[in-house]
Amino acid sequence: MLVLMLEDIRKLVKRTLDGGKVDGVLALWRENGRVGPHLFVKGDDVSTLEIDPKYNLAAVAILALASGAKKIALIGRGCDERALVELFKRYQIDEDAIEFIGMACSAEQAQACECDIPYPTKIQFGEKVDGVVPNELKNVDDMSLDERFAYWRDVFAKCIKCYGCKNACPVCVCQDCVLEDPMWVKKGEIPPEFPMFHLIRAYHMADRCVQCHECEEACPMDIPLTLLYRQLRQDMKDLFDYLPGASDAKPPLTTVLEDEKLEEGA
């Protein structure tokens, strides 16, 4: 099934490249025995194309476009699509520069990421499966405040300040990162101050985290960052009826109150 799908995707990539409407197709390929991102261009051998493991290609698309490509196609998953939506919204990528080709994740893939929305809105390959709720989510929900503080304090003690969470994040796009400002986070300290470092990053993720899990995968210590960010995503939904990556609505933390909320605030 998966093999058939892979063959179909390769065929489509070849057709897309031959069609000449895009300068390249951003996807994964197997080279030197490993799998990583690659911009396929006309004439490339598409049999090297792979769809596993997951690399978020939205961030890579910024680089591929920086080379001067006018338009590229991108073979991506639900999280790639959501990241792209945020990047369009935040003026990082021109919407017209990307032709998104969406794959739905398999149940196994969804489980591996504990993904809540393991499919894009536009599915060209694969079939939609249900989202996954991580067990740990209930665990932390059930904790008392003190227990939760102790839990996160212990978890974040493992942080070695690699900034991998920031570097791997497709929607962390600030040139000057507040985490690197000594005003807020002491320099050169491992583990970094708790709760400063991690709370600041979490806050900044609130209206942009698309749950791609790149931060967690880039974390050498397996800190369950997406657990925290997932709770914040839910908050955004509850408070502002907003889900990052799901629509082109403006991020609510950058906008002013509407009439109805004005009443409430006053």
Partner: peptide, 22 residues
């Protein structure tokens, strides 16, 4: 050279790096 992407299939890095690697 504008950046690095960790190799998710590498037996040591497993998709992660330290700050020097990044």
């Amino acid at each position: 050279i504008v950046g690095v992407v960790p190799d998710k299939t590498h037996p040591i890095a497993e998709g992660a790096l330290c700050i020097k690697g990044w």
